[in-house]
Amino acid sequence: MKHLKKSLISKYVDNMIKDQKTNDAIKKHLDECVECRQVYDSYIKIDNFVKNFNVDIKDDLYLEFLNRKINHSKTKISTFRFSLSFALLLSLIFLLSFSLTLFTGRKNILKVENYTQNNVIDKSFSNFLSDGYSDIISTVDWTEK
């Protein structure tokens, strides 16, 4: 006698064979073939074994869940507070450094202005007294015409 494929028996156990004729043929074969019947029975046994597998809950899971939820929201709030204060601190540092830069920058500008004013006057005066200028001046006819 030809035996059924074990994968087909597995599908049959799960009621996943849609075709009624095939279902009937398998059922008939299982009634007649001892070997295939043994495979079928062992599959059913295994299924019952897994169906009855349960993890006993020893604690009040929902109560523990509620506690965790509360802790989670507390952590969320403290994380929010921390990020908020961190952002405030950062913006304070930024403002402080910005105003410092502005202040020192203005001071420097004044310094540069003073320096350039003095130096330019000095330089133009010394240029005026230099030899080159004297030569040019000497060529000018100062007499009134």
Partner: peptide, 13 residues
Amino acid sequence: VESLIYRARENIR
């Protein structure tokens, strides 16, 4: 899925 379940059954057997 069909194949996984079949192989699971066979392994357990």
